[in-house]
């Protein structure tokens, strides 16, 4: 178990930002905390990172309570921050090598730290920018450097908070590929927050939907879609007339359609229940 959270509560004054949140993350999993703004995602993540103290509940990350995690514990966790303009005058390779040097005392024969600087620069596609000043990087390059900094200690758990906010679609796709390759090649466990469904769908094995400080749902993409959006949508025309029908069993429905009407069925279209529908349905339900 990499992350174990039970009955987590966070209270500011008389407002519960998190209310009885429980979940687990298993080794090698990619888990997305999905939810609208203000759902409590960032608060949850900051508690797990040890940056914020909780009001109540039990939290364990890599076998320790983050509120009392020591430097050895800190060395096993990678945090991908949304950088802005810190270390602007540092050169890319210089910064990465420097931040990596903090992890060297925590290297073991079975788990070498830090990551070799040049290898990591190549892995994140910044080999050509190695000698460039950080402030001269493009937005997408800078975000890749953020990932490299998060990964430089070869963490067992990588935590990303809204990693693609403000990126254009191209940079976003590159970013997803990068995170996936880290996970596939190194078996890193990943916990990320996002309010973007497509992102959760593309990256995560499991999704936790957080809404109003509570876990509204959790499961794989397919499970969530089936459980909450329910029905697929089938559209067709019969001798020029258009029909629309919702059904949980779209394949069987189409088979029956052809059996009864044969070749008169035209323009057949089946839309599977998407996670987007599931998500919107959930948020609507939580708000009403």
């Amino acid at each position: 178990m990499v992350v174990q959270v039970e009955g987590l509560r966070m209270r500011y004054g008389s407002v519960d930002v998190l209310d009885d949140v429980s979940f687990q993350v298993l080794p090698g999993q990619v888990v997305a905390l999905l939810g609208p703004n203000g759902a409590g995602k960032t608060t949850t993540i900051e508690i797990l990172e040890g940056f914020r103290r909780r009001s109540a509940g039990r939290v364990e990350v890599l076998g320790a309570d983050p509120a009392h995690g020591d430097e050895r514990w800190r060395a096993r966790i990678g945090v991908v921050l949304q950088s802005w303009r810190d270390h602007g005058r540092w050169r890319v390779r210089e910064l990465l090598a420097h931040l990596g040097s903090y992890y060297a005392p925590y290297s073991t024969p079975g788990h070498r730290r830090p990551w070799d600087t040049d290898g990591l620069l190549t892995a994140v596609g910044l080999a050509d920018q190695a000698r460039q000043e950080v402030r001269r990087l493009s937005g997408g390059q800078r975000r890749r450097l953020d990932v490299a900094v998060g990964a430089v200690g070869r963490p067992e758990l990588l935590v990303l908070d809204e990693p693609t906010a403000g990126l254009d679609p191209e940079a976003r796709r590159e970013f997803h590929d990068l995170v996936r390759s880290l996970v596939d090649e190194h078996g890193t466990t990943v916990l990320l927050t996002t309010h973007d469904l497509a992102e959760a769908e593309s990256l995560a094995d499991r999704i936790l939907v957080l809404d109003g400080g509570r876990i509204a749902a959790e499961g794989t993409v397919d499970e969530l879609a089936r459980r909450f959006a329910g029905e697929d949508e089938v559209r067709w025309t019969l001798t020029g007339e258009r029909f629309v029908r919702s059904t949980p069993h779209s394949t069987a429905f189409a088979r029956d359609l052809f059996r009864v009407h044969g070749s008169e069925v035209a323009d057949l279209e089946i839309r599977r229940a998407s996670l987007e529908d599931a998500y919107l349905a959930l948020v609507r339900r939580a708000e009403s």
Partner: peptide, 12 residues
């Protein structure tokens, strides 16, 4: 600009 937070996220 987040330099201190970056330091906080790093062991030592």
């Amino acid at each position: 600009d987040g330099t201190v937070l970056r330091a906080r996220a790093t062991p030592g």
